[in-house]
């Protein structure tokens, strides 16, 4: 039988950031539930993380964000309790013309005396009518708001669907092995050599790589693309393996890469099937990023 794992403060930090696998999250949650010390330490870690979150560069949201929130809370109005404290009433009103404090017993006794039915009945009909009018008005307003929200959402969905279809078409054209691929050169240029072209957006971690005229490989080998980060001492990051088709064409579309890594260069090596964690020399293709 295996011993239960010892939960360390390192584990609690990862738990607080939701970075543990699901079963370890559950294990740590159960431990925290039963240990007062762990709860205290976790609260400290959450405090540390809150402080760390405040180191971020401050940016203001758009004015529309505030407007959108206020509209939304206006739509989700709450019923305000009517049992407001007496002090509130006192604070809101001024003394009456006789100098009596509002809410005082004396002030109440000054009211003209009428029977309950005499006071209430004349207003019941009006109150019901007014209530119905307000409700109908609110319902109409709500319906109009919902209708305009649905129209707006529907138009957004149409745009997104069209964008997605266009993006899918571009991707299909790039990855279709039957697509015609032509490399244009000046007339009389020497025979085409293996060539790769990488398009990379560092801030989004998006990479598109296409290659032409690649040599075929043995079945146990594969080409591997590498992102070589800018800055000294950083290891190349594997950016996907690929094999060329019968015409020597290949591509790597949006491999999983961290965001925000500036590239100094890209390279291609030949590795064993499955790829490698570090590149094996020689580098078959290499290209430095512009400005490097």
């Amino acid at each position: 039988m295996s011993e239960p794992r010892r939960i360390t403060s390192e584990d609690l930090a990862l738990f607080a950031m939701q970075l543990l696998p699901a079963e370890e999250m559950a294990e740590v949650a159960a431990y925290v539930e039963q240990s007062e010390d762990a709860r205290r330490e976790l609260a400290e870690i959450q405090g540390d993380l809150a402080m760390y979150a405040h180191t971020v560069e401050m940016q203001s949201p758009s004015a529309q964000a505030r407007e959108r929130l206020m509209k939304q809370i206006g739509r989700e109005k709450k019923a305000i309790p009517i049992d407001r404290p007496v002090e509130d009433v006192a604070a809101r009103s001024t003394n009456d013309e006789f100098g009596h404090a509002p809410g005082s017993l004396y002030a109440i006794e000054e009211e003209p005396k009428r029977g309950f039915a005499g006071k209430v009945l004349p207003w019941v009909g009006w109150a019901v009518a007014a209530g119905l009018a307000v409700t109908a008005g609110d319902l109409y307003k709500e319906r109009e708001t919902l209708r305009s929200a649905v129209t707006e959402q529907s138009s957004r969905i149409d745009h997104l669907t069209a964008d997605q279809a266009a993006a899918r078409q571009v991707l299909d054209a790039m990855t279709d092995s039957s697509a015609l691929r032509v490399t244009l050169n000046v007339k009389g240029a020497p025979p085409a050599v293996p060539q790769g072209r990488a398009t990379y957006v560092a801030s989004k971690g998006t990479l598109i790589f296409t290659a032409t005229n690649l040599e075929p490989l043995q079945p146990s080998k594969t080409y591997e693309l590498w992102l070589i980060p800018a800055g000294a001492g950083q290891n190349p990051i594997p950016a996907g393996t690929f094999r060329p088709d019968a015409r020597g064409n290949a591509h790597v579309i949006m491999p999983p890469l961290p965001k925000g890594v500036e590239a100094k260069a890209f390279g291609v090596t030949v590795e064993d099937e499955g790829g490698a964690a570090t590149p094996t020399l020689p580098i078959i293709l290499v290209g430095a990023a512009a400005g490097e």
Partner: peptide, 13 residues
């Protein structure tokens, strides 16, 4: 709102 937005923007870009 500024801190909530800034943290979200840093994560989501």
């Amino acid at each position: 709102s500024k801190v909530v937005y800034s943290v979200a923007l840093r994560v989501l870009r």
